[in-house]
Design a protein around this nucleic acid. Structure first.
Lengths: 212, 212, 212, 212
DNA sequence: TATGAATGAGCCTTCATTCAT
DNA sequence: CATGAATGAAGGCTCATTCAT
């Protein structure tokens, strides 16, 4: 319930401001993500967080500031690397179907790696309202940006005559939904790797829209 | 808990009879579903529920028994009609692709009609734990049963040489995910009806797995 | 729940240490005993307890854990010293009538000193049921143990030909009842000290059973 | 939980105002006494009473008026016959020790017969405060009157040279306590009848105070 | 008489957060 | 950095009681 934290008393001795601080913070954010994903944000108390991290209630506040700020930190954790990779893939200018396959892989790997964080995001982003709207907007913005990349790629495929899609917006929604919904069932110890899943899904979907 | 008492309608004496009780209960369950979907189960207080229903806190308990029982009632609301329709469709014995199209339509219409209830289910079913496990099992069972119908249909298609699927379980998950995820974005006032969406998704997906 | 944490007093860092915690808890338990004795356990709200202790409702829970645990703490308060003294008296091996006089004195002084606690015990021990049965058993066990000491002493007196008692169990019940019932009427500011009462009662009772 | 009440629909048909009413009321009061004795007044809800009597919440109120009025009815049930018998015994003018023996028998039989009611009285009489003080006073008055009878008898014995008592008030308290405390342990199915107990207690006590 | 839906106050408890140490 | 005692609002739920039927 409250084992002695890791650091030795020697290394702890004042001075350098955040040597291990940032790492510890990240670790706490990930633990919070796990608990929030398992039980929900509101159903997880700071006492449970305290027990899971080994820090006392008061000590936690040095790292998290407030419970709600944890939500932001959790969101940022998975959306930033995903967006970065999405833009890199798009910039490579591969053919549309290859680009989509790569995007599917990137998204699926992100979900697999940060499943807890994604779960929290999808279940709790409505929770933020109060006032920190600005910061919440950044997260929503990032989410929409990823969707836009998919959208552009699909339309590029149509323009190049590679895809044939009656309703491009629905294709985006279907494609994303197929993958995103995996946050509900994917397990790291499953028979398929994230890339296996992405490839299988792409083979269903791209064959369905590809011009023959 | 609420079966009709023994006496015939003749013996039934004073005290406004059950006439209306069941309707009122259903109405309350739907209001709860809306609030839970909007703000989350734990973030919705009984005070808010009381305000939304026009009943005092105490009066609510005539209908709900407990806050957690609301979760069950909400689940049952959308899963029972869906399952009934799914079995009816399967029993018709249409060709596999027609069956899948009909199942997609049924599921999509269910999500469109009971979007709040589905949202609550997908976000909160982990919440039930405590002891009503038995009743929770019934819900999980119903959910798995719907999945099994999809699964059987896909495999029937493969057996009949209509579909070509490397990994049948992944096809089920992709197909379901594509549609289920619509709980996150579908709006009743959207440009597409539930059937439009189901048809579009089927055209993507079935073309992708259909043997040519 | 409240054992001393591991570290030595040297390692113990900030946060006002346990120094005082135990004393405060005891004080709270005694205040609760007074209120419970005056108005009854169920009729005393935590608000009243909060007002009487000067702690806010939430703060109380640092010390009590739950309202029901207060019952245990109250019981332990008076039964442990009583039992300890009873065993010490018995071990002295005085003649049976002297032993009984000493036991009566010990019991009567305990009731006088912990009248509130005894009142709560006699009125509310049926209240504990739920699950903390184990702990409840310990209390019942202690109570029976005191009775057993009386019982043994009376039978020793009979065996030694000092007492003459037709029905030894009824003698125990009468002896104990006479003294125990004083929880209903004894006041610390009365004309008689606890020892006065014990002596008077013994003179009635022992003369009644003593062989002539 | 709610079996059909006893009366046939025929006898029930309007008219004669209280034919079975009073009997039913008494029955309800006794059931309430049992529940209050078992669990305490405050811990017993009207729902439990409703379940135990077979009447619905609303119907109960035709008989009881309010929960607190039940306390009065319970008290009156055992104190009135006791007091009547006590006065009858005193008026017979038997020798003091015979009178005491008879009083002990009357009290012990009353406790045995109305153990639940006595328990409720001893545990809950402080509960009545609010305003119905007048009616509560009547009960306290009756209780004191019984004590006074004992007191007078003991002093008569001393005056007649039959008893030798240093502190007459303590004798009364001891004598009464010995018997009254039996509400804590007496069971109707015990090896001893109420009269057995009364006789045994008198033999201890009267021998203790009798002049030799 | 009897019902049971409805009330609204009040109950025990938990919670996120603060702050002296 | 860290502790843990303390806060005070709010949470889910139960209660005695009323009243239209």
């Amino acid at each position: 319930m409250s084992e002695e934290p890791t650091g030795s008393t020697v290394t702890r001795r004042a001075g350098r401001p955040r040597e291990g601080y940032e790492a510890r913070r990240q670790e706490i954010v990930d633990i919070a993500a796990r608990l929030f994903a398992e039980r929900g944000y509101h159903a997880t108390s700071l006492d449970e967080l305290s027990a899971a991290t080994g820090l006392q209630r008061g000590g936690l506040y040095h790292y998290i500031g407030s419970k709600e700020r944890l939500l932001f930190m959790i969101h940022e954790r998975f959306i930033e690397p995903l967006l970065a990779e999405a833009h890199a893939i798009e910039d490579r200018g591969d053919p549309p179907d290859a680009t989509l396959e790569n995007l599917a892989g990137a998204l699926m790997r992100d979900i697999a790696e940060y499943r807890d964080q994604v779960t929290v995001f999808l279940h709790e982003w409505r929770t933020i309202h109060p006032k920190d709207r600005e910061r919440a907007q950044a997260v929503m913005q990032a989410r929409r940006e990823f969707e836009a990349v998919i959208d552009r790629t699909l339309r590029r495929g149509v323009a190049q005559g590679v895809f044939e899609i009656p309703e491009s917006r629905l294709a985006t929604l279907g494609f994303l939904g197929m993958i995103n919904y995996s946050y509900q069932w994917y397990r790291r110890d499953a028979a398929w790797s994230a890339d296996d899943v992405a490839q299988a899904f792409c083979s269903f979907f791209l064959d369905g829209i590809r011009v023959r």
